[in-house]
């Protein structure tokens, strides 16, 4: 069942950047792409549970700050060693100035 939660304001994240969002004991990462779209994934790297929000966003890739594991944040796809497990992604919508994610 859909469960939309307000994660942040649209302008809280720069273009081509990422922000951490904690909710219900879980941590998420919210992204704003260079073409101004919003995405959300699990907040922790699938390699060693490191917060991805400390990582670098370049184009559609988030790079983990710990050992440079790379994911496509739009699909969650792991892009090679050392990460081999994909990231879970969550639906996102922008409503007014707010970014909502479906954690349901």
């Amino acid at each position: 069942m859909a469960q939309w939660i307000e994660a942040c304001g649209k302008d809280d994240i720069d273009e081509e950047d990422v922000m951490r969002f904690d909710h219900g004991g879980k941590t998420y990462a919210i992204y704003r792409s260079p073409d101004d779209k919003f995405y959300a994934t699990d907040g922790l790297c699938t390699h060693e549970k490191i917060h991805l929000a400390d990582g670098l966003v370049m184009d559609n890739i988030i790079e983990c700050p710990k050992h440079n594991g790379r994911f496509d944040y739009r699909t969650g796809e792991a892009k090679g060693a050392p990460v081999c497990i994909n990231l879970k992604t969550y639906p996102v919508k922008v409503d007014g100035g707010k970014v909502l994610i479906d954690v349901g």
Binding site: I50, G55, L56, P65
Partner: peptide
């Protein structure tokens, strides 16, 4: 502390 410098070192 933590991964505070990772992003800038990467850049």
């Amino acid at each position: 502390p933590g991964n505070s410098i990772a992003r800038d070192v990467k850049l």
